[in-house]
Write a protein that binds this DNA or RNA. Structure first.
Lengths: 207, 207, 207, 207
DNA sequence: CATGAATGAGTATTCATTCAT
DNA sequence: AATGAATGAATACTCATTCAT
């Protein structure tokens, strides 16, 4: 039993090493330019072992993407409490920025987009279960603000996307076209303008 | 003389056939999954001829991208005249939509993004000379509207990007994750909301 | 342990088979006219395996040349004892002849010379570490003969080359221009004349 | 008629240009690494014209080699007069050196040797009609010296080769292994030693 | 269970030679 | 007679995947 669990932990750590090596390589070079042998070497396992864990390169890729997304799905259970709308929007946007820019989400998105022709269902999954789900969580927050009377009643499905579109324009879009994109100095200013704009449109009229 | 010009015309048509075949294949399958031999076959030339026209696969790719972009660069010299701001924004956005959705710009962007790790300068070129230039043209229109007094004076550099971000959220962003994305039925409604939002923020106060 | 050593032996034998096939083909047809696929087939391995062993055609070529040269480097540690000068020269020359004519050194030299424009450093290596080193060994023998009083003191650096030049004139030079060159019937007579000539020039005067 | 001869001269000059371009390229890079298209470009003709003049790359190569050799065949009609043997040997050797080192005979030999497997008859021709014929001319001179009583009667067939072997050892042999070989500073000293050695062996005894 | 050697099916690119004009 | 565009066959090299040990 001790032996069995020791073995299981070895297996798990190999799996983790493979995923890490694969992720790093995919992020660096994209899917097709990375050889399985390189991933195996970087993970310090044989190619045969690699194939024991992941039946194909495609599956390994999917696992990398799913793992990356699952890491970031959990952490958005916001209780709006009595925090002012402006602060809430700022906090949510800041959390998102951290994830996109410090985590390698932008690069990951690029890789997923690159593989749309060969792994359409995976890209779809990322979009639906990653991006849209996040929008759903954000929308829930907006709905709460409406309920609290901070914002006018309106189509929050659309307005959340409008807000997201503005924010991504400055933080994600340019990153798709350059591996070296890093947080611009004036990003906070731009974010502030996005938030102000949003509030200007949707803030409830003060009586 | 007749010979020379005859030859030139043949050469031109072959070049065009190659570009067309390459474009179709790249759009369909991405860069690395397309073999030069397939492009040659589709263009009805030998691989050797293909290489006479384009010295490498990379160069062919760059030519495809540049040609696609050059097709769309010319057509945005708008005289705002006395057209109302709302109509102008609608017209510009409609033109953009046609290009992105009917032309295959969205798919092309996907392919360019896919090649960021191996052709960073090309992606950069597309971003700077394609996307940013277009934003510049749009911004010029906005500036005119400000000058005309329709819009409040404001930082149009940022506001044009905010508008673009909102619009792309509904028309470009989802297309990056799916080859089959087609114009949603309610796209016009969403665009209308984007325009209204924009005007709500920046429209000059009526006296 | 058994596995590892088993594998090592397999690998060694494959490597040897590849080198043999490569050598035969290069000797037969020269470097550029031999396809890696042919070598692989002759060695009974796939091209991929071939490339596991030798990273490029150039490296394979270099390995073939180096192996051939290393085979012949060891065997020239002559103790002159009291053997007469004439016999010593005869023995050395005979050994050299065997190597050049029975081994395929002449053909190998041809191939190396052919690749001077594309592998200058390899040709240089063959010249400096193969040919010149051999001359050095020969010269050491000559020096001993001088020390022993059999030969006059003289510039043995040059005289050894003069002797070598004469001998090669009959045994190497014609072989460079014909793949079918084989030991001429009267070679021994010619060699004898070379030796006599050499001794006539440098033999110490009898008192 | 004037037109016809004009045309013929054009044709001739094109032929010459092709031969020149081919020669330069072959000398620089060897046979197989030179593309016919490059030769055509360097000669300022189309590939089709090139093929009008030379039916194949092999034939062009043969023509280059033959032309180079024919250039050097003519000029060795030496009247020994009363010139001393030593001077005669020096003059002949000097002429040979000029040809090998200043002309590009050494490089040409290398290229011919490289093509032995694919053009054996050409290499044979070079050896028999180039090298051996030259030895024959040299031998005739030696025979005259014997007849004049300067040298002992002996097998001049062999002795001429012995002399040639010594001389080539210092001037041709190293050049086969390096494209950059240039006349060594002490070449004249070495040649002098070769001549002295030769005379020491074969000079007639003074009475 | 883990290994790493082995492979077959590709891939981009080149080049001697031909042919329509 | 001259062109230069066109080609088919070849070539070095790669990689996802399998398998004997």
């Amino acid at each position: 039993m001790g032996l069995a669990s020791y073995r299981r932990s070895i297996v798990k750590s190999k799996r983790a090493a493979i995923l890490k090596a694969a992720r790093e390589n995919f992020l660096e070079s994209g899917f097709s330019r990375v050889a399985m042998a390189v991933i195996a070497r970087d993970a310090d396992v044989s190619t045969a072992t690699l194939y024991k864990h992941f039946a194909s390169k495609d599956e390994l890729f999917a696992a990398v993407i799913r793992e990356a997304h699952s890491e970031t799905e959990a952490n958005m259970h916001i209780d709006i409490g009595t925090t002012p709308a402006h602060t809430i929007l700022k906090n949510i946007t800041d959390a998102y920025m951290r994830q996109q820019l410090e985590g390698q989400m932008n690069s990951l998105l690029r890789v997923v987009i690159a593989e749309v022709p060969s792994a359409p269902q995976l890209a779809n999954e990322v979009y639906e279960k990653g991006i849209l789900v996040r929008y759903g969580q954000f929308r829930a927050v907006i709905d709460s603000l409406v309920a609290r009377g901070d914002l006018k009643p309106h189509d929050t499905e659309i307005s959340s996307h409008c807000f997201g579109g503005m924010v991504k324009e400055f933080s994600v879009w340019p990153a798709l076209f350059s591996q070296d994109f890093s947080r611009p100095d004036d990003l906070d200013d731009k974010i502030a303008i996005c938030i102000d704009s949003y509030l200007k449109i949707y803030q409830a009229e003060k009586i």
